[in-house]
């Protein structure tokens, strides 16, 4: 067994020559040099598009932590993205531009809110959990709509990007790298957490919550902690999204966005740490290219590309059981090493 530690009874999770690992490394390398390629092509648009992809990936990494590893199907995680975006826009409208304050506010509001929502939602499970998370998100959505002083339905623009110490986020490339680093950090943290004793119990709550409880694990504590952590990641994604678009609106918390986050997680591969990045790339690239493709063939229907997207999602759910990234072998010899990773 490659990479077995002498004192360990276990194969180490990462196998560097496995297709999954190789794919992840290539993708990360490409992301790292992307701004240089874009500037060589003199197409700055790709940088902001890639930033958006990574922000979606970040939110999906958050969701994946509970969906992929804890089996908690939240159909309301966009609400935390919404929260993060308003944590930038509202202070900014009062002239508070410090990114540290924005993040602190986002996290500071997200933790108690997600704890409350999570505590109620986790009293249920299965289908009721799906629906109650959706309902909470609607509640926050309408809450944002009711903020008449902050644009109500229309949302509000952000005058300038957050200031973050010496980082100049007004530079698109700098913002891109800030987002990329955040994504890599989130990947690393979730990977560590998944393999940790905490992660072992979390994965067990997905696989067999009854057994985990009967063994003596207080699974509610594990689930709630994971839920709050995942919400915080989405809130940070919201902070970044408001910085990218210089805008925050109730639409950021729309339930369709929550649905898209689930699509991203599934598309990448449920229960893989790196899957959300792959899923975000595929979904957003599709949303970006579909209108162009249709325009080239059936120009009359250019605006109806969502029809194909809907069918695509339907068939992903029906056919793609392990996701694109999840379908790649995680080990070289075909022996399945469990926590599959990046």
């Amino acid at each position: 067994m490659s990479g077995t530690k002498p004192s360990s009874l276990w194969p180490v999770a990462i196998q560097w020559s496995a297709p999954r690992t190789v794919t992840a490394v290539i993708i990360i390398a490409l992301l790292a040099v992307l701004p240089m390629i874009a500037s060589a092509l003199e197409s700055s648009y790709y940088v902001s598009f890639a930033t958006r992809v990574l922000i979606y990936a970040l939110a999906a990494i958050g969701l994946n932590f509970i969906l992929g590893f804890g089996g908690m199907v939240s159909l309301g995680h966009a609400m935390y993205v919404l929260l993060g975006a308003y944590a930038v826009a509202i202070p900014a409208s009062h002239g508070v531009t410090s990114g540290f304050i924005h993040v602190a506010l986002a996290v500071g509001v997200c933790v108690p809110l997600a704890s409350g929502f999570g505590a109620v939602a986790l009293r249920t499970s299965g289908i009721a959990f799906i629906m109650i998370t959706l309902a909470f998100a609607q509640m926050l959505f309408f809450g944002a709509v009711s903020l008449k002083d902050y644009g109500g339905d229309d949302g509000l623009t952000v005058a300038a990007r957050s200031t973050l110490g010496g980082l100049d986020l007004t530079n698109n490339t700098t913002l891109y790298y800030a987002v990329l680093v955040t994504v890599l950090l989130a990947l690393y943290l979730s990977w560590r957490a998944v393999l940790s004793p905490f992660g072992l119990v979390l994965r067990a709550t997905k696989s067999n919550p009854r057994r985990a409880t009967a063994l003596g694990h207080p699974i509610f504590r594990y689930q709630l902690t994971a839920y709050v952590a995942s919400a915080v990641v989405c809130a940070v994604a919201g902070v970044l999204l408001a910085n990218l678009t210089l805008f925050a609106s109730p639409a950021y918390g729309a339930w369709t966005l929550s649905g898209e986050l689930i699509v991203i997680v599934i598309l990448g591969g449920l229960g893989t740490v790196f899957g959300p990045v792959v899923g975000a790339i595929i979904l957003l690239a599709l949303e970006e290219t579909l209108p162009t493709l249709i325009d080239a063939t059936l120009p009359d229907y250019k605006s109806n590309w969502m029809l194909l997207l809907g069918l695509f999602i339907f068939f992903v759910a029906l056919l793609l059981k392990r996701g694109v990234f999840g379908s790649l072998p995680a080990s070289v010899r075909g022996e399945r090493s469990k926590p599959e990773l990046p």
């Binding site: 360990s8 940790s196 004793p197 504590r221």
Partner: peptide
Amino acid sequence: NARAAHNFRFWGNAH
């Protein structure tokens, strides 16, 4: 691990 006094750990590898 269900008998471990401090299983609420996020960092070290369980293995």
